[in-house]
Write a protein that binds this DNA or RNA. Structure first.
Length: 552
RNA sequence: GUGCCUGUAGCUCAACCGGAUAGAGCGCUAGUCUUCGGAACUAGAUGUUGCUGGUUCAACUCCAGCCAGGCACACCA
């Protein structure tokens, strides 16, 4: 039974166990900090897995890294003779100043490929998330106008991150916080009302801080043409715009589980409830006629007003209640994606979470940087004030869902992104989306053309010996490592990088070796190989929310 | 003024708790097709990692100071 369990473990775990055992034998296990650094080397010539543990032990053990690495290697070599690692590792080498590099055997890679083919779609799924309940809140744009490119990037990043976490076995829900009351909503209602008067021939002054966009006219026209009797222009505006936003997101391929209304939150009395709790804990005090939250107790720079002297709430008040409610609804891990203008807000909210007794680590806030839109290499000017900003809709119409989602995720979410619409439209190697999708389509084409009676299901994978064949399996094998990076960095962008590299490896293989040939055994083995590549590319594209065409 | 982010090849960007000769794509140059999809492949040139110190066996990465750009600093949301 124990042995069977060990067989189920992946190679990384097995190796870590072997290294731990070796350290124990050498009496070095107490010297190191407990963290084993076993990872993919930057370069394949340094093996398939590598560790720098010898460097870390050098000082406490008072030996040179090289010396330590040599003795660990010797111990591990003995592990290879029997036990679960047998046959999986071709060679253990000490290289450089003391790196331990592990070279896995072809038989191991053949076995890996066999494994993923038998698992099929979803081979990449794991249960490391253990069903932990995660709420990821993103976009949450004010319902005062169509979504901009900034929101589009947040939508792409949040949705892909949610996909990744689901794939890793978390139980993920997507939520949009609807800021459906307050100043900006009043201004929205007022803007519509003014435009309506204008349409009726009245002379009006349209204030600078009101919404200037064309869509305000559209709403006013609709009211006029259909002869609607509008009691509450703000409510009308919110409903109308929410309809637009929902459609935009739907067309972008993003689906939310919940739309959480601030208005309903306030009416529910949950805000007063949480204030009661904070008051009891003496985290609130009155000063200058306002109610303050002692956020400095929890590391914020200064205390924050939650109830203004006129008796109304600040933005923070409902937000505190909102986040407490998230926990009350049973979520254990909250992830928020915010625009860069909310940067200064992080401390406050973390303080609040801390104040009602939750670990601030259970709230992760990701700042999604802006995207600048370029056309023909030149930046497109944007001005929110005059209602002239590039919208999600425009990008969708111009370049489509696949290219936009992929492009938005091509850089780390924390860094600025230049998005050139013209490149995103190109169907050449300049455009990474098509490069990846083309690899998928090519594979599908070959699989369809394979003669009757020949199938990857009957393949004997030991026929795969060529360099390009093994390289391709190795690349597929790296997929779980990449997912793990996405998880630890909470950033799906590494997937776009990986998919490009995977596609490149496939194209190189394809160029050098023919899949369908006279040798039936070899043909079947290669069909299995490209079937594996297809599974990996398709899974990666799924996670990004990009389609995986069988024909292009 | 205070805080945060950014600065790497001509351009856009990588470099996974500090690790091996800092890597890709585009662009540029020269090639590959009797071929399962040429939306492909091969080869070549390109660097004082903004500057100056410090810590370390090892620094693009950590620390300090400076320079440049961006953002945030409300009883707005």
């Amino acid at each position: 039974m124990l042995f069977k369990d060990k067989m189920k473990k992946d190679i990384k775990e097995l190796l870590q166990t072997a290294i731990n055992d070796s350290l124990k034998e050498l009496g070095l296990d107490k010297a190191y900090d407990g963290f084993l650094y076993l990872d993919l080397p930057q370069d394949t010539r340094y093996g398939d897995l590598s560790t720098n543990v010898a460097f870390r032990l050098s000082k406490p053990a008072r030996k040179s890294p090289r010396e330590i690495a040599d003795s660990i290697a010797e111990k591990i070599n003995r592990h290879l003779k029997d036990g679960p690692l047998k046959g999986h590792i071709k060679e253990v080498k000490v290289e450089g100043a003391g790196f331990l590099n592990f070279y896995l055997s072809e038989a191991y890679f053949h076995g890996y490929l066999r494994g993923i083919i038998s698992k099929g779609e979803g081979f990449i799924r794991t249960d490391i998330g253990k069903g932990k309940r995660v709420l990821i809140e993103f976009v949450s744009a004010n319902p005062t106008g169509p979504l901009s490119v900034a929101h589009a990037r947040q939508a792409a990043a949040g949705d892909a991150l949610a996909n990744v976490l689901e794939c890793l076995g978390f139980s993920v829900k997507r939520e949009y916080y609807l800021n459906d009351e307050g100043n900006q909503i009043n201004i929205l209602g007022n803007s519509i009302e003014l435009r309506l008067k204008e349409l009726s021939g009245e002379k009006i002054e349209f204030p600078e801080d009101h919404y200037q966009g064309e869509y305000i006219y559209d709403m006013a026209k609709e009211i006029r043409e259909r002869g609607l009797k509008v009691k509450d222009f703000s409510e009308f505006g919110v409903e109308h715009i929410l309809g637009i936003i929902k459609k935009e997101l739907e067309d972008f391929g993003v689906k939310f589980d919940y739309w959480y209304s601030q208005k309903k939150l306030r009416k529910s009395g949950k805000i007063d409830e949480v204030f009661g709790l904070l008051k009891k804990k003496e985290f609130l005090y009155e000063q200058d006629g306002a109610l303050w939250f002692k956020s400095t107790l929890f590391g914020d720079d200064k205390d924050r007003v939650v109830v203004k002297s006129d008796g109304s709430y600040t933005y923070l008040a409902p937000d505190i209640a909102y986040h407490q409610d998230k926990f009350k609804r049973g979520f254990e891990w909250l992830i928020n994606l915010w625009g860069p203008d909310h940067h200064g807000y992080i401390g406050r909210l973390k303080a609040a979470v801390n104040a009602f007794g939750k670990d601030p680590g259970s709230l992760s806030i990701i700042i999604v940087q802006l995207a600048s839109i370029f056309r023909e290499g030149k930046p497109v000017q944007m001005s929110t004030r005059r209602g002239q900003y590039i919208t999600l809709r425009e990008v969708l119409d111009e370049v489509g869902v696949d290219a936009s989602r992929f492009f938005f995720l091509m850089r780390r979410t924390s860094s600025h992104l230049d998005f050139d619409l013209d490149i995103a439209k190109k169907h050449t190697s300049e455009n990474p989306v098509y490069y990846v999708q083309y690899a998928h389509a090519r594979i599908c084409s070959i699989l369809q053309n394979s003669p009757a009676g020949i199938s990857f299901k009957k393949a004997d994978l030991s026929f795969l010996k060529e360099n390009e064949e093994i390289e391709l399996i190795k690349k597929i094998w790296q997929f779980p490592f990449i997912l793990n990076i996405c998880y630890t960095t909470l950033d799906p962008y590494m997937l776009t990088v990986y998919l490009q590299a995977l596609s490149e490896t496939f194209h190189k293989f394809y160029d050098k070796h023919r899949v369908l040939g006279d040798d039936q055994e070899l043909t079947q083995a290669r069909l299995a190989l490209i079937k594996g590549a297809k599974l990996a590319i398709a899974s990666g594209l799924d996670l990004l929310g990009v389609s995986r065409p069988e024909k292009m």
